[in-house]
């Protein structure tokens, strides 16, 4: 993946711009339940508030997601991270990086910010325990240089949570 390593440095292509404007206007009409888009003037970086679903371990907790769009979105996946403090979850690292296949290898351009949000909330909701991934410290240390999660070689082993 040649340009995925610096998702936010290059300006959005015309196609990416059109698509994001469309997504944003659809979001405004019909936002996914449990999410709030924080209005900024930057189309390329969205900050989204997530509210834990009622009846789950994260009920009433609020977190913030940061979504950075690469030049060739939606061909390339957006970079999606939690702005620390990130929720305690077996697939979410303390630096906010999220181990979820659709954000990396299984991304498809037919997905949208909205559908990614729904997947994330579902991932949170199905968590049986509030804990960090077992390799959290090691991974977070490796990312100290500001590495993007899109550069990580993710190993998606757990399809239950």
């Amino acid at each position: 993946m040649t340009s995925s390593s610096s998702p936010s440095r290059k300006a959005l292509s015309k196609i990416a711009c059109n698509r994001l404007q469309k997504e944003l206007s659809e979001w405004q009409v019909n936002p996914p339940t449990g999410f709030k888009h924080k209005v900024t003037d930057n189309l390329q970086k969205w900050v989204i508030e997530v509210i834990g679903a009622p009846g789950t371990l994260y009920a009433n907790e609020t977190y913030q997601l940061q979504v950075d769009f690469p030049e060739h979105y939606p061909m390339e996946a957006p970079q999606v991270i939690f702005i620390p403090p990130a929720p305690l979850h077996p697939h979410i690292y303390s630096n906010g990086h999220i181990c979820l296949d659709i954000l990396y290898d299984s991304w498809s351009p037919a997905m949208t910010v909205s559908s990614v949000c729904i997947s994330l909330l579902s991932m949170l909701s199905s968590s049986p325990t509030k804990q960090r991934p077992t390799d959290n410290d090691r991974y977070v240390k490796k990312c100290k240089n500001g590495r993007s999660p899109k550069e990580t070689r993710w190993w998606f082993h757990d399809d239950k949570v």
Partner: peptide, 8 residues
């Protein structure tokens, strides 16, 4: 509906 890629 819409084209799933451009959403138009």
């Amino acid at each position: 509906g819409d084209c799933p890629l451009c959403l138009y």
